[in-house]
Structures are given as structure tokens and as C-alpha cells.
Design a binder for these strands. Structure first.
Length: 554
RNA sequence: GCGCCUGUAGCUCAGCUGGAUAGAGCAUCAGACUACGAAUCUGAGGGCCGUAGGUUCGAAUCCUACCAGGCGCACCA
């Protein structure tokens, strides 16, 4: 709809220019928006105000000139008006709005599918937690945001792949093996002073107990380094499997798990660094290799090879991102916890050195979750083993409520997650509000069938009967659903869908309380059944993007 | 000290990338089931959009400086 109006307006502006009424002007900056106040029309454009400075004329006068030169071959405009400082307001004919009901019910679950992505290949990398312990509630937010973003971009016409980067080549993994090793010896009777940098969670004890069960105490006599390295692999594998299962139950299934170790195969990292050094992006200083990230705006250069010869995490990450691009992705999206924000400039520097544009790597920061219990902050740390796992939240709050909860806020705003409130599973939880609307509609349709009123063919209803204000509002809101998705996809802001859903459900509930769907008037009943069926489709489509179920009964 | 994020109703947050009279939910108060599902609805109160300047037809939104909170500032990941 916006697009149609944009064409009409720019056509009119061109006509004015040709007639010499307006100088040649740039039309690209004009905007078409939905006014907050319905008295201002269905859509409003700021053309005249934008053009005012270019054309050096009074905006209201320009608006009038444009208004007089509008042509509307498809006949969608009921009337136009000039208002305020020079807005050009458009009122769309009722018949045009009613047409969206047909569109929705013709397209069903395809309604809202867009082609703005043009099939471009996008990769979204998220969660990517080290397999040193189970996922906790802090990881859950990033998991949901990433998963929903993928769904959204797919709906918008991108070809999207979701990837989990397994950070399994560094010190932390070694500490994991060590932790298991200490617990192993402890379980076999030794008294152990547990080191500071080891993981203390109970899951470590479970893993060592498992090893004892199958292999007994034979590692006590074995080479310690080899044993730790072996335990490391065992523990990492087990934990990763658990992570995958937790994510799956949370509705998140990755297309690809990528191990950091892959990058080191066939000297991959070293070769890349050598070639970058040849190009002058890397220099050596007393046995340390530095990447010149400052030449791309970072505040200081960064080490890639330490004095002791070991590559840094950053070195591997450069190789990783080159690997991603080499797989043919046009756009990369990384989702990080906001505490890593300081890392952004150096990674952008790296991909630019590799010949890519900064815009080709988008980084979404997800603020950390502030965990509360009855209003009191809860300290969390993987190392100490004090944390609330994703699994616990899933078991107690449920997938739908947990996911919806994380989608209620912009990702870069801080989020308080109060366990006592979330676990209550009360109607304070907004997810039920939306699901209830869907269940209610399903129930009405069921009821109609029980009373012998079949769902009418949507092409045959008399849409003019839908004359209640709420009915018009509902239809217009549904017509805007694709525009909401487009805005969310372009800005990578998934929370917009959530807010849209709340609003749509709200208008429906209000409508429901004022009007009966099943009435004595057969034509009216038919029209209203079609209306609510369309609402049901839109609710279900949007909920599907969020990965939240649309129940027919609750 | 430097950098990033945030500051909007008592609380938790939106505000469509600069638009018309700043909106929801929760909480408070007053109402609505012999009606397709009351997990719902109707109404009321509640605001110096952190502060001060600037940009322009127009600012919660953009710029600058302060203030407050969070997070970073490793040859950790």
C-alpha cells in the first residue's frame, strides 16, 4: 500500500515538474506513514515539507499543487486532504481495504512473505557458548533473538543459515579437562584443593562419575597431560550434546556447528596471517605479531600471535570470518552479548583488511540479562556453578512464555528477568494474551460449525457489512502486517513483531467484547467469520516467526 | 581516564529511523459474564521524554556538553 502511494505521489511530483509548477526535486527522501490519529487519514506523506526547502515555496502550497496533479488510475483513493504544516493525507477506499481479507485468506501461511531479500545469502551466528557448561538463562536471550531473526529474514526473502561457533581450542577448554580430572581424583578418595580457574558445577562431578563407571580408576596411573586432554574431549563432547538438546527443546536448531579447531587445520590460521603480513596489515614487534586495526579506526592495534607463539582468539576469529565469506554469504550477522562490544572495531577492521565492506558484517548486541529472584539480584557465574540453566527455565516457565519474554524488549535494552514472576505462569505473562486471541477465534469457528454454520467462502462475503470501527481498524492493521515485517527485517529488530501482535490481539479482544460474531443475520455472520479467520491467520503467521505456538485451545 | 549501551507515567517498556494532542502492560480506583472462552473488556487518575544549549517549518528521536546507571578497556575467550 505504501508503495502504491509512493508511486502515485512521485508520479504527481514529476507531472508538476514537467508543467513547470515545481523545480526538479529529489523525491527519494519523502516518507509515507500511518498517522497516530485516524482523523489524519490512513496514510500521510510529508512530501510538501521535504520539497519546501528545495523548491523554496510554502509547504501547504506545494501540497496543494501536488494534490491537484494526483492521478489515481487504480482508483484506490477515497479522498485527500492537506493538513497541519503541509501534510498530504490519504484516505483509502473501503473496497481496497476489504481486498486484504481476500489476500490473507488466499495466501494463508504465505501472507506476509516478502521478497526484499532477493534470495541474498545471509548467515546468522549466535549463542556460540563454549561447551564448558550447560547454557544458562543469559544465553537464552541471544538464542531467541537469533532464532527469530533467522525466521524473519527467511520470511523476508533471504536465504539464511544459522551457525553455532564452538570455541573449543583455547585455555578454557583445558580448564574443563582439568576440572574433570580433579573431580575424578576426588571421587576416588584424594583430597583436592580445587583451583580457582576450574569449573565447580555439579555437571563436572557427573561427568567424572561417568568416566569412573566405564573406565574405573585406570587414569590415576596414566600420564596427567594426556589424561586431561582426553577428559577435555570427553567432557566437551558430552556438554555440547546437552547444549544441543536444550536448544532443541527451546525451539532452536542450528544448520551448522563450526569448530574453532577446523580453522587450524592445514595451517589455516598461520597462512592467513602470513598473507595479511605480506599485504602490510600485520607487523612484528619483538616476537609478537600485531594487526594494524588502528588503520580502520580501532583505538589500538591488536595482538594476533603472542610472544610465546600462540595465536590469540582474535587470530582465529579473523580466519573464521574469512571462512564465512568464502562460503558465499553476502551478509554476515553476529549476535553477541553486549559485554563484548569493545571487540567490534577490531573485527570490522579485520574484514575490511580482507577486502569486505564494514556493512557486510552486522553485529547485534544483546544486553545481558539481569537475573532477579523476587526483586533481588542473583549472582551468576559458570565457574562457581551458581546459575539458573536454560533447562530450568524451560521446565518451569515453558518454551512459549520464555521465548516471548525475551522478545518483549529491544535487544539492546537491559532486561530484568525475575524468576519468581516468570515461573508463576500467571496471566501477567503477555504471551497468553496473544495466544488467547488465537484460541478464542478458533473456539468461535468451532462453535459456528457446531451450530451448523460452515466457514463461508471468503470470496463471496459482503465485506461492506464490516462497518464497525473495530472491524475497519482490524482490517487496516492486518493490511500493515507485511509493512511491519519489512521494517523489522530492515532494522533487524525482532521485537517489533511482538508489539504488533499485542496490539492486534488487543483490538480483537476489544472487538469481541462489543460484538457477536455469530448472529441471526447470516450475511453478517459470514462476513465476520471471514474477518476473524483472517485475524487467526495473521496471528498464527506472526507467532510462527517468533517460534511460539498458536494454540486452538488453552 | 577513554569507549559502547541505557535514561520516557509509581514499576517494566514501546514510540514505525525528524512529524500532527508522547502510548501500552502491570499496579491503584470504579464498573461489565442467564451473551460465540472473564487468561477478556469499559472507564479514571498518573508525564519538564535525565539536565542545559544547538540544528529547522517541526526534536523523545539528530549534534554538543554535563548528570546518573550498566558494561567494556588483556599477549582471556
Amino acid at each position: 500500500m505504501k508503495k502504491k502511494l509512493f508511486d502515485i505521489i512521485s508520479f504527481a511530483v514529476t507531472a508538476c515538474t514537467e508543467k513547470g509548477l515545481l523545480p526538479a526535486v529529489d523525491v527519494s527522501r519523502i516518507e509515507i506513514e500511518v498517522p497516530a490519529n485516524p482523523e489524519h487519514g490512513d496514510y500521510a506523506s510529508n512530501v510538501a515539507m521535504i520539497l519546501a526547502s528545495q523548491a523554496k515555496q510554502n509547504p501547504r502550497k506545494i501540497a496543494q499543487t501536488i494534490q491537484e496533479n494526483l492521478s489515481d488510475p487504480a482508483g484506490i483513493i477515497e479522498k485527500t486532504q492537506i493538513a497541519g504544516p503541509g501534510f498530504l493525507n490519504f484516505f483509502i477506499k473501503d473496497e481496497v481495504w476489504k481486498q486484504v481479507l481476500q489476500n490473507i485468506l488466499d495466501q494463508q501461511d504465505r501472507y506476509g512473505v516478502l521478497d526484499i531479500g532477493g534470495g541474498k545469502k545471509v548467515q546468522v551466528e549466535f549463542v556460540s557458548a563454549n561447551p564448558t557448561g550447560p547454557l544458562h538463562i543469559g544465553h537464552a536471550r541471544g538464542a531467541v533473538v537469533g532464532d527469530v531473526l533467522v525466521n524473519l529474514l527467511q520470511t523476508a526473502g533471504y536465504s539464511v543459515s544459522k551457525e553455532y561457533y564452538i570455541n573449543d581450542a583455547g585455555n578454557q577448554m583445558n580448564n574443563l579437562g582439568k576440572s574433570v580430572w580433579y573431580r575424578y581424583r576426588e571421587a576416588l578418595g584424594e583430597t583436592i584443593e580445587f583451583p580457582e580457574n576450574c569449573y565447580r558445577g555439579d555437571y563436572i562431578k557427573d561427568i567424572s562419575a561417568g568416566i569412573i563407571k566405564t573406565d574405573g580408576n585406570k587414569y590415576l596411573a596414566a600420564n596427567e597431560d594426556e589424561t586431561i586432554s582426553y577428559f577435555n574431549g570427553v567432557a566437551g563432547g558430552l556438554i555440547l550434546e546437552e547444549i544441543k538438546q536444550d536448544l532443541k527443546d527451546f525451539g532452536v536448531v542450528f544448520d551448522q556447528y563450526f569448530s574453532e579447531k577446523e580453522l587450524y587445520k592445514e595451517n589455516g590460521v598461520a597462512d592467513l596471517l602470513a598473507s595479511l603480513q605480506k599485504q602490510g596489515f600485520i607487523y612484528s614487534d619483538e616476537g609478537t605479531l600485531w594487526f594494524k586495526t588502528t588503520s580502520y579506526g580501532d583505538e589500538k592495534d591488536r595482538v594476533v600471535i603472542r610472544k610465546n607463539g600462540d595465536p590469540t582468539y582474535f587470530a582465529a576469529d579473523i580466519a573464521y570470518h574469512r571462512n564465512k565469506f568464502s562460503r558465499g554469504f553476502d551478509i554476515l550477522i553476529d549476535i553477541w552479548g553486549a559485554d563484548h562490544h569493545g571487540y567490534m572495531p577490531r573485527l570490522w577492521a579485520a574484514i575490511q583488511a580482507l577486502g569486505h565492506k564494514k556493512e557486510d558484517l552486522k553485529i547485534i548486541l544483546v544486553q545481558l540479562v539481569n537475573l532477579l529472584r523476587a526483586g533481588e539480584p542473583v549472582a551468576m557465574s559458570t565457574r562457581s556453578g551458581e546459575f539458573v540453566t536454560l533447562r530450568e527455565v524451560l521446565d518451569e516457565v515453558g518454551k512459549d512464555a520464555a521465548r516471548y519474554n525475551f522478545l518483549m524488549r529491544r535487544s539492546d535494552s537491559h532486561l530484568d528477568f525475575d524468576l519468581d514472576v516468570a515461573k508463576k505462569q500467571s496471566n501477567e505473562n503477555p504471551v497468553y494474551y496473544v495466544q488467547y486471541a488465537h484460541a478464542r477465534i478458533s473456539s468461535i469457528i468451532r462453535m459456528a460449525q457446531e451450530r451448523g454454520v460452515a466457514m463461508p467462502a471468503h470470496q463471496k462475503i459482503d465485506a461492506a457489512l464490516l462497518a464497525e470501527p473495530e472491524e475497519k481498524t482490524l482490517i487496516k492493521m492486518m493490511a500493515r502486517y507485511p509493512e511491519i515485517l519489512e521494517g523489522a527485517a530492515k532494522s533487524l529488530e525482532v521485537h517489533r513483531i511482538t508489539f504488533y501482535l499485542n496490539e492486534l490481539a488487543g483490538v480483537f479482544h476489544s472487538y469481541y467484547n462489543k460484538n457477536k460474531v455469530i448472529t441471526d443475520n447470516n450475511d453478517l455472520t459470514a462476513a465476520r467469520l471471514v474477518l476473524i479467520d483472517a485475524i487467526r491467520v495473521v496471528l498464527a503467521n506472526a507467532l510462527k516467526i517468533l517460534g511460539v505456538s498458536a494454540p486452538e485451545k488453552m
